[in-house]
């Protein structure tokens, strides 16, 4: 269990993480989703105590990471940038880290076998490909068989087989009741791996909800309606439970009912419709919308009227 409360990190005038509060629960894979620069890596470094929060606290299993007597047993981490001395062999790298916790050389060999680096274990890590470096990073994370896995962009550089292996590993970990937090900037990858998702944009938490809900949100297609009777039609649509936003004087964006249902309703009310287009929203688009709304919110001086993108996810966060 990872618990973050009002985490904020500023570098000079730049705010990398802005009042972030969330809980990562055991027993499921939690995805940390956001575009590059959203603050995912900074947050992960703060969880590990590598960066100190400007304000706020984050605990793992009830205490700050640094206060655990056997930290590697609590969290196994793969950080985005390589954390390996390039001139040292993979085996000695792992052995040095294992030695801090009195972990045996046999276990070192075991994780090397597990990630498939047996044949190159004695070679210097500087010569490793991106994928091999990633495997070594994963071996490092698995070393003490931790209760929490913290993986920053673990599929980077892995081939499809490796990516599937990672997914299986993460699910297996979660199924054993352990905590898994995995970051990605790829919505599609998250959809395949995570059961719960934290969406980050510009250092702020945009959404904290089960993956299934995020998928449902994304899957509900939007219908664009063009009508000179926008007011009346919008009222009627809200009446049947649709979500309506007015994009132009004569244009509505409707979520909920199908295009056919909207057309029928307009016909019943004898309201003329000039355009009716169903738009499929892909996962990536839903994700982009979510984060773009946040960017706009920041770019303008004050709160934007009707900027649902920044308020709706916050309520979802409370519910989750």
């Amino acid at each position: 269990m990872i618990l973050a409360e009002h985490l904020t990190k500023t570098y000079g005038t730049k705010t990398a993480v802005d009042d972030l509060s969330f809980t990562v629960r055991p027993g499921q894979v939690t995805g940390f989703l956001g575009p590059n620069g959203a603050g995912k890596s900074t947050t992960m470094r703060m969880i590990l105590g590598l960066d100190a929060p400007t304000s706020g606290v984050v605990t793992v299993a009830g205490r700050p990471y640094r206060e655990h007597p056997e930290p590697l047993k609590v969290v196994g981490a793969l950080l985005e940038a390589r954390a390996i001395h390039t001139s040292r062999s993979a085996y000695n790298h792992l052995l040095a880290l294992a030695t801090t916790h009195g972990i045996s050389a046999a276990r070192v060999h075991q994780v090397i076998d597990q990630v498939g680096l047996t044949e190159v274990a004695g070679k210097r890590a500087g010569g490793f490909s991106l994928g091999m470096g990633q495997r070594l990073g994963i071996a490092t994370a698995l070393l003490a068989d931790p209760d929490t896995l913290l993986l920053d962009e673990p599929v980077n550089g892995l081939d499809p087989e490796g990516i599937r292996w990672i997914r299986g590993l993460l699910r297996g970990f979660a199924a054993e009741g352990r905590t898994v937090l995995v970051s990605s900037h790829l919505m599609s990858e998250m959809a395949l791996t995570a059961e719960h998702v934290l969406v980050l944009g510009r250092g702020r938490l945009l959404a904290d909800l089960p993956m299934s809900e995020l998928l449902a949100q994304a899957a509900s297609d939007v219908v664009l309606v063009r009508t000179p009777h926008a007011d009346e039609l919008a009222r009627a649509l809200v009446g049947i439970g649709a979500t309506v936003s007015r994009t132009e004087v004569d244009a509505l964006e409707v979520t909920g009912p199908t295009a056919g249902r909207i057309g029928d309703l307009a016909c019943d009310l004898r309201l003329s419709v000039h355009g009716l287009v169903a738009k499929h929203v892909s996962l990536e688009e839903a994700f982009m919308d979510m984060t773009r709304a946040d960017v706009e919110f920041h770019a303008r001086a004050g709160p934007v009227p009707g900027s649902d993108g920044s308020t709706a996810p916050a309520s979802a966060g409370n519910a989750a």
């Binding site: 076998d113 047996t118 490796g162 292996w165 997914r167 299986g168 297996g172 199924a175």
Partner: peptide, 20 residues
Amino acid sequence: LPRQRSVLPGAPAPAARPVA
């Protein structure tokens, strides 16, 4: 997908043990 594989492809097969 075969998530029972606990060994990265490319690793010697015998070490494969069910994850759960």
